[in-house]
Amino acid sequence: MIHNRLNVLRAERGISRKDLADAVGVNFQTVGYIERGDYSPSLDLALKIAAHFGLPVEMVFSLKPFETLTSQLMKAKGGG
């Protein structure tokens, strides 16, 4: 399974599934399926999505689960 940060990134940028879907040329339901982990995108689509957010693909998709925002904040607070 491929994990992703699409939910967080969309919320952060304030864009809907439809906006993202239109930008990368897929059905908005496909974005929902990817977010839910029910569909793993092709490399082509993953790169398009990452490029849309202006991030490296490994910051959007990963084979391992991403750290939650809470644990990242706690680490940041603990570190300094």
Binding site: G25, V26, N27, Q29, T30, Y33, I34, Y39, D44
Partner: peptide, 8 residues
């Protein structure tokens, strides 16, 4: 007329 998930 379909995207990659729909085709799959």
């Amino acid at each position: 007329m379909l995207d990659e998930r729909e085709v799959a």
